[in-house]
Amino acid sequence: MLRSIAAVGNDSEFGEPRREPALERVEKSVRPAVLQAISSIQERYFEPITLAELASEVFVSRFHFSRMFAEATGVTPGRFLTAVRLFEAKRLLLTTSLNVSDIVCSVGYSSVGTFTSRFSRAVGMTPTQYREPQVAELLVAISPTFQRLPPLRTLRAAGRSCASLQTGSGVLSLQLDMPRGAAPADTLVGLFADPVPQCGPVAFGGMANMNSGELTIHGVPAGRWTAIAVAQHQAGTAGPRFSIGYSPVQVAPHGQSTGRVGLRAPASTDAPIAITLASKQSPFTQRMLAAQRPHLRAVA
């Protein structure tokens, strides 16, 4: 399901992703030291990497390195490393039968208890719950080497059982600007409390075969959110097959709010994201709870 980001630059069976001219321009504007540090994180995320080590590798001070890294990626080096480790942990949970302790060691954590607590707090599910089939079925993945968007019909079928959805009275109308030359796309926009989310959105909306235009999301809680747009374009044009966009939005408690998101091809400076729209209370979990209830009543 998720392809390992560690495969970048190694002997990967998936090959190199097609590079877009616009993406090349984005990456040329990033300082080589940042790109080198990102490459080092991707190759060594399972090691105990420190900020001092990353800064020394690119011959700058820790303060200067942290500042220019955040300017290029939008997050600190530590948060970027955590995003890479959790992305890989989710990949292993979904695609292998490795036990949790083996996964913990392979993604750079030394304690199963610490990893489980951090994973559960960030994702909203335990590692074991994350292995339920519905999690993979409703997975959204964004990285430079792998992108996935669940079919919109699957999301519609899931309805209000999607994870993290909150009740709100706001309406958000977003103007989505697709990349130049891009074909129509199945598009999903989620609103998140974190710019590098690990759990589901507070609200989302989608549209099939969409060009640049407006997408409206209803039932949005009031507050300041990060809108993340993901578009999977039809084949047959010179434009990208997959594009993404990020933008902060402010939603009023009543009435209609507006925002704008420009989409582009994924870049190496994007922290990888893998979130599921599946609820922790999936059908499997509900069946398990139902099976336990008679026993609990008997004990009482």
Results as ranks from 00 to 15, higher is better:
L93F: 13
L54D: 05
T50A: 03
R148F: 06
P48L: 08
T145H: 11
E53A: 15
S56V: 13
V84K: 04
S97M: 04
M125A: 10
R121F: 07
T96N: 10
P144T: 11
L155P: 00
G159R: 12
A157I: 07
T82H: 04
F69G: 01
L155C: 02
F63W: 10
R118E: 08
P144D: 11
R79T: 10
Y109W: 10
V104K: 01
G113L: 06
I103Q: 11
Q129Y: 09
T73C: 01
R121Q: 13
A55H: 07
D102F: 12
V60M: 08
F65G: 00
R148L: 15
G108S: 04
T154G: 00
Q134N: 00
A136P: 02
S110H: 05
V123T: 10
T114C: 01
V107D: 00
T76Q: 04
L54P: 07
K90S: 08
V84H: 01
C105W: 07
R118H: 10
V84Q: 06
A158V: 02
A83S: 13
P127M: 08
S110E: 07
T96Q: 13
A158E: 12
S111I: 03
L93E: 03
A136N: 14
C105H: 15
A72E: 15
V60P: 01
G113I: 00
A157Q: 11
R118G: 08
P77A: 03
Y130Q: 04
S120F: 02
E57C: 04
E137R: 14
L152Y: 04
E53T: 14
A141L: 12
S111L: 13
G159M: 06
R121C: 05
L54K: 05
P77K: 09
T96D: 06
F65L: 02
T145Y: 10
A157R: 13
S106L: 14
L98S: 14
M68K: 04
F59W: 12
T50C: 04
S143A: 09
E137P: 04
F69N: 02
R131A: 08
P150M: 01
Q134D: 10
L149G: 14
K90D: 08
L138Y: 02
S106N: 04
E53H: 14
R121V: 07
S101V: 12
F69S: 02
F65I: 11
S117K: 14
S66F: 03
R156G: 13
F63P: 06
R62W: 09
L81E: 08
F119T: 06
E47A: 15
S111D: 11
R121P: 07
R148H: 10
E71K: 12
D102I: 11
L51I: 15
A158P: 08
F119N: 05
S117E: 14
P144G: 14
T73E: 06
V75F: 09
A157C: 01
P151V: 07
G159P: 00
L139P: 05
K90H: 08
S97A: 14
L152V: 01
A70C: 04
C105R: 15
G74W: 15
H64L: 05
F87P: 01
G78L: 06
L152A: 09
P144F: 00
G124D: 10
F59V: 05
L152D: 07
T128W: 03
M125V: 04
M125L: 12
P77Q: 14
V84N: 04
T145Q: 10
Y109G: 02
A70N: 15
R118P: 03
E132L: 13
T128F: 09
T82Y: 02
A70W: 01
P150K: 06
S161L: 13
S143K: 08
L81N: 03
F146Y: 15
